[in-house]
Design a protein around this nucleic acid. Sequence first.
DNA 1: TTGAAAGCGTTACCAG
DNA 2: CTGGTAACGCTTTCAA
Lengths: 343, 343
Amino acid sequence: MAMKALTKPTIYQVAQLAGVSIATVSRALRDSELVTEQTRERVRAAARQLRFTPSGSARSLAEGRHAANGIVFPDLVGPYYAEVILGYEAAAAATGSSVLILATHGRRDPAAAVRDLAGRVDGLTVLGRTVGDDVIGQIAASGVPVVLLARDPVPGVDSLRAANASTARALAAHLAGHGHRDVTFLGDPEGSPDVAGRFAGLRAGLARQAGTELHLVRPRGLDLQAGEEAARALLRGRRPDAVVCANDEVALGVLLAAEAAGLRVPGDLAVTGWDDLLAARFAGLTTVRQPMRELGAAAARWLHRRITETKRNEPARAARRRILATEVVVRRTCGPHEEVQQQ
Amino acid sequence: MAMKALTKPTIYQVAQLAGVSIATVSRALRDSELVTEQTRERVRAAARQLRFTPSGSARSLAEGRHAANGIVFPDLVGPYYAEVILGYEAAAAATGSSVLILATHGRRDPAAAVRDLAGRVDGLTVLGRTVGDDVIGQIAASGVPVVLLARDPVPGVDSLRAANASTARALAAHLAGHGHRDVTFLGDPEGSPDVAGRFAGLRAGLARQAGTELHLVRPRGLDLQAGEEAARALLRGRRPDAVVCANDEVALGVLLAAEAAGLRVPGDLAVTGWDDLLAARFAGLTTVRQPMRELGAAAARWLHRRITETKRNEPARAARRRILATEVVVRRTCGPHEEVQQQ
DNA sequence: TTGAAAGCGTTACCAG
DNA sequence: CTGGTAACGCTTTCAA
């Protein structure tokens, strides 16, 4: 049977077996027009027999491109980033690019990891609070195109995000319409640009509503447990009319804590989230829906444009910015509605 | 100010600027002992000034390794794969490896994409129903270590999965204990090895229970909508006592359809899922919990072992198999319980 | 401690 | 149409 593959076969072995030059092998395997059907077949047979797979690094080096791009995100907990990455991967695949992922969360030195990644790709998408502006700036200046996603802009770098402030204002108006006056925001504006935008929008929206007040409480994180803990503490003190949470997971934690405390939602306490996770629907949680997959896809497409225009040495166009629309999804937890609102 | 980076700087420019040879640059930048502190600083300064980032492909080619491994999965919908990938990325990072992801779902030619990927990595993890045994076999035989995850084993290849059949048997016993006799399984055993295992286990479990019957209905897919559609059709006919679903999303769809049909769960119909998504908790869905993150991490670690032992040309050990334990999570939808069961 | 030079496995140009 | 042969940018002996 087949002998053991002690060492990976190279183009040379294929050439030898097929009785042609390596140049011909390269051409035949990449469907160049410049080969006889006959030679092509012979080469293919040899390649198959040897189980030859071209070395990606050698190819990249010779072609002067990596045929890959990277995406950097803080973590992968919760469906949010997963959806973004899925959209990203699909769009990147359409442009013939592989995707390298990098989670900065548990890293010793995120900046170093991102710099290293920058050397392995044709372009990079960076999400949220992963590395500082300085790192972004250096990478962009070193000639690697960068797209920012859900992150504060950096001069000269494309950036893409979902609407936060405007929708948060709409949410504020909706809550005020329910008669909620004493509102607490559960989230850390310093923790992420998205959260900052949501808080700012909420504040602006409530400022237009007479007699409302807004308090800020920072949970330990953005997960279920952080929400639960924060709510437990919060509900022991003066209880607000409504808790607006930085994301759905925190809001779901609040729901759990409220239930444990014997409070009715929305009767005793209104709660809202952000993201519209699947769980939000089953919890009846009023929230905000974001086009996550589209966000990822758009980033991949922008990056591809930058990469091709850089390669062609075209005059670099000015940095682009775009904000994708989001929408309030009204369900049960924001307050009693006359008519049944179904989503 | 800094001039435009028309072309990416190479080690040669750094060497020239620092007034040393490229060998010294290479050593200095990689913290070799063989450089004076003084030279090292000079080189570093030059590299910084030029914003030099070593080319990943050149480095890989020279080192004879990619310092990257790949993970292939069908899709990324639902939190399942995201969790697996997160665990994988974290473990891979710990071994100094980058991660290349590849979703086969919308691809024209998954096999070709996976073969290409195999040329860009030191090892590969393949999940579920993405490519056939033949492709797996070729890749493994070509000298690229492979680990299979949630997939039927291939001779000579390590494989890792979460328990399906045994836990499904336990689930069957639990349902029978509730008095459910007429059970329908909602899922396509041919669609994935996991689903096949769950169905087989359920069948085996019910076979031990006198007077039970099991029916099989194949939904269009594994998402919410598929479950909803399938349930709508199912509930129009002879209604079963219990519907065991291939995964949580399908089960949640069934819940929606049951509600729309005015049925009480679990009073009129018991429902179970599989995966223990966050949404399952809020829907009160009885389901099965899988150690998803651990699954991914274990795959990355196994792969790393294979890679190092292959590189050292050690005698390849026999293929390993492991099945990680899963557990039934009893909630509301499987039937009435005397005592409140909290999770 | 440093430099020169030989690869690493492809692609692509230039002759024939 | 095919073969020879420079690149590609880095790491790593081998000498000095």
